[in-house]
Design a protein around this nucleic acid. Sequence first.
DNA 1: CTCATTCGTTCAATGCTTGAACTTAGTGCG
DNA 2: CGCACTAAGTTCAAGCATTGAACGAATGAG
Lengths: 381, 381
Amino acid sequence: MTTVDHLRQVRLGNLRTVLLALVDRPGSRADLAARTGLTKATLSNLTEPLLAGGILVEEPATLVGMGRPSKPLRFHPAGPVAVGAEINVSHLAVETLGLDGETLERRLVPADMRKATADEVLDRIAGLIREVTAGSGRRLLGAGLAIPGVVHDGTIVRAPNLPELVGTRLAEGLGERTGLDVQVDNEANLAALAHLWPRHLAGEDFVHVTADVGIGAGVVLNGEVYRGVSGFAGELGHVVIERNGILCTCGSRGCVERYAGLDVILREAGRRRLDSLRKALEAGDPKAVDAVRKAGEALGVGIATLMNLFDVPTVVLGGSYAVLYDHLREAVQSEMDGRVLAGGERHSRLLASPLGEFAVVRGAAGLITRRAVQQPERLFA
Amino acid sequence: MTTVDHLRQVRLGNLRTVLLALVDRPGSRADLAARTGLTKATLSNLTEPLLAGGILVEEPATLVGMGRPSKPLRFHPAGPVAVGAEINVSHLAVETLGLDGETLERRLVPADMRKATADEVLDRIAGLIREVTAGSGRRLLGAGLAIPGVVHDGTIVRAPNLPELVGTRLAEGLGERTGLDVQVDNEANLAALAHLWPRHLAGEDFVHVTADVGIGAGVVLNGEVYRGVSGFAGELGHVVIERNGILCTCGSRGCVERYAGLDVILREAGRRRLDSLRKALEAGDPKAVDAVRKAGEALGVGIATLMNLFDVPTVVLGGSYAVLYDHLREAVQSEMDGRVLAGGERHSRLLASPLGEFAVVRGAAGLITRRAVQQPERLFA
DNA sequence: CTCATTCGTTCAATGCTTGAACTTAGTGCG
DNA sequence: CGCACTAAGTTCAAGCATTGAACGAATGAG
């Protein structure tokens, strides 16, 4: 709105384009100009403050081919980093992530959080963050915080497994403890984001499905995490597959969660923990195999419904489902093939997440690096 | 990419902002400046070519209040118009729509199209378009064409009720016949668009649900129609509500369509046509009332699932469902209240469409006026 | 040593928005 | 009737990011 803000916007937009190209891979000014469609002149101009600000470094010249050698630009190895943190029912985790997408430090500590108060949880998380960031000397861009619940306008509005946290504003609490700019989001959304940023692991339209106590789906449309109007989008656990089926805690009947939730699978398989179930599956225990297959059928019906509504070509199974993938795949795929309209292999792809137990916390950190790239003015603070 | 294309983009963006403000309502330059955040100087500059090009007119001064009277700008009454056309199983329709959102002409002619070839259909549509556009002397911006099927990259890839059209490229055929720039889309998407443009009738996040032979949902997220990767999004008809339920033509079981499709309702009610059903309902025929209530229950379960996935606050019932609204509402709302997570009146609103049988064709025309506003360079052709 | 080649920088030109000053066209009041 | 007041609309110099062309820099090939 001020004098030439419109011109400023053009510049920031171009800066974003350049940074996105650099996240993809390093490159010289000439190379970046070719990749972004900008001119070499503009690139020199745009990168100058980034180099001066310690965001980028110029590498020694590459001595290949004819002509003046190029000096590739990359993110500065001592440049700013983002922190990711995760609060879950049975563990806490933190991770630091550079703008180049490299993980610097990680911690995952088992801890029963079910009855912990917000203050207790935040104190522990803040301690872990201090551990992983101590002494690096690198500027911190902020922290992303993942929680197993629905967040709306910074407040936790639903958290079936961490009832103590409902109604609290965790971002502010963690901000006070760490001095960081904190952003809170749902673990399902962040696990999905980890498959999108900084690397595309499943295209730019997919659904990432995980099971903990509930079943959550993170929906990515057009390269953006879709959160819905109130942050409730992707509640795959409460998709109905049998309208007069088992009563659910949510008040509905026949929700997918009652047939394919991790608690249901474990109970049916007669096991207490995921690890024990996995061993039973490896040993070929028929009760375990059967329990997982049955869950897969229910999950497949829910996923088919989801795909008929969102029309995304790819489903990523993560978390516990990734662990059980080998025994889930067939049943899930079979229901999908039989029920998805745009079906057939051509359209529906089922993948296991390659990210393991750090997916959520990596997504939490990615939320911050991504914001820094999309709003490059934040890099000059 | 040329010299100062970036500057051009800024100008076109501002032009779009101004036109959007004018679609909302007419206003003087000073008023528009206040509403858009631009300066009076810029507004004079931007509107000058629109006035010269016959897109806008300056009204005689309004003589109210102190100071120099303002001369409101509005869309020119002889300015360009868009054409909408609809091909359906049992009728054809066309409509012309001005940039101001006013309907100029309409035709809806009953016609059994089930076995018609693409050429026959296009000839008839082209004839209707000539009828409604003849002699107006106004420039035509293009035509939107609605069909009961899925469109991807301009080709009809699915049309259960008009099998003759599958694989054809109707846009090109109609373009050749009329000389217009034609854009084809699904009727569900266009019915939804009609509730969004040029007037917001249900906010900017909602789902519009209609029943013909199948059940289609047009999904509007963030003020944009969401089409999915292949144009299959919003296939509410094939959301599963009983996983071992009735076999569906799509190969799945327990699809909503098998319980809440119009054909099912009519059969259960012992009627042949919607009109006859409506009269039976008005007379209180218990068989009819019961058939509609049962359909409403099934539909409500499907809608609840949809809302748990998309997290939209509003559902609009259109087409046949709007006609049956009084007898559907209670059952649908009851299932929604019991099953939607973000539920309660605060979050889920159920409405009947106010647009009647012209919703689809109005949306088809709206597709074109909307494009003209969003890409203002098209207005200077 | 010279030429060809490619990288990166310098610089005048372009064209859009802006705020301030100015002109225009009314109302209200003595 | 005239003068002050108010608000609409126009004019204009200033500011700024990108651009293409020209130029300087750094290397390989012959």
